[in-house]
Design a protein around this nucleic acid. Structure first.
Length: 284
DNA sequence: AACCTTAACAACCGCCATCTT
DNA sequence: GAAGATGGCGGTTGTTAAGGT
């Protein structure tokens, strides 16, 4: 199926945005909220593609953006999330309030890649650079992930050639249904039976990995002794948001869906799309 | 001062998933 | 269910500033 262009390209501006264009976009969204990007340019008096407007808003003009240098903590968090999620920049951005996927992606490519290489770590595989891909002791653990997200992920843990045995390489299995990485639909909770495939596994690494990806932690997830290991790992990968985390039932009542499924844009109880703070809102 | 190289980041492009009709 | 519309994502490119020669 072919697709029509998202906008009339003949009369659209390209390249850097002017201050006037920015102001028009800000004023329009302040007045009407986000949404309907296709018709927004015309309504706002902009000679821009709707997608361009959306990108400009999300990556640059949104009032809850942090901007400025990344902290060391953010660096480490990005590295750990990338080792877990790969190039899922939007998911990673969801764990870094005030940061955009584009910003993180750029930062990864310009800073963190080099940083990892200087540490002797392959930025893509998170394995030591000078080792070959031998699999003599590869351990594959395929396990279900219980989350409140609509999907269940299979996680492959690879303990081969790890510098730090406490931090195995973790890759999202391509065979899973995790193509639905987007967090914008559905509210069902799904748990697949635990499936562990262990061809050659030393007994000391047989752990029950219960991973919650992209979610604030809730105490009941870590109550069992079996999940202690995964909890310890998770606390380094995806710490709870700063400040008090609302009790689950309170959250369910008062917080938007995006917050419930892990989005914490701006650190408040509203994601960037649903928030009604700062004078902006979304009519959805 | 002029030129070249590199780094940083904003913006674009094409594809895919989801929604609507 | 099919087709089209729309939003969103990740990869890539273009532009510009900074630093080096």
């Amino acid at each position: 199926m072919g697709r029509s262009p998202c906008c009339e390209k003949a009369h659209t501006n390209k390249g850097a945005w002017t201050k006037e264009e920015d102001q028009r976009l800000i004023n329009y969204i302040r007045a009407h909220g986000e949404g309907c990007w296709r018709s927004l340019p015309k309504a706002a008096g902009l000679s821009r593609c709707g997608k361009s407007c959306r990108l400009r808003w999300i990556n640059y003009l949104r009032p809850d953006l942090k901007r400025g240098n990344f902290t060391e903590e953010e660096d480490e968090l990005i590295i750990k999330l990338h080792s877990l999620l790969g190039n899922k920049w939007s998911v990673i951005a969801g764990r870094l309030p005030g940061r955009t996927d584009n910003e993180i992606k750029n930062y990864w490519n310009t800073h963190i890649k080099r940083k990892l290489i200087s540490r002797g770590i392959d930025p893509q595989t998170h394995r030591p650079l000078n080792t070959t891909a031998t699999n003599s002791h590869t351990t594959t653990i395929t396990t279900a992930v219980t989350t409140t997200t609509p999907t269940t992920k299979n996680i492959n843990m690879d303990f081969t050639n790890n510098v730090d045995q406490n931090q195995p390489n973790i890759m999202i299995a391509t065979s899973s249904s995790y193509d639905e990485t987007k967090c914008n639909s559905g509210t069902t909770e799904e748990t697949k039976p635990l499936e562990i495939i262990i061809p050659k596994i030393p007994s000391q690494v047989m752990i029950n990995l219960e991973l919650s990806i992209g979610l604030p932690l809730h105490s009941h997830h870590i109550s069992s002794p079996e999940s202690t290991a995964s909890y310890n790992f998770l606390t380094t990968v995806a710490p709870p948001p700063t400040g008090a985390v609302p009790a689950a039932e309170t959250v369910a009542k008062t917080v938007c869906l995006c917050w419930q499924i892990g989005y914490q844009g701006g650190g408040g109880q509203w994601c960037g799309k649903c928030k009604n703070t700062n004078g902006f809102y979304r009519y959805c």
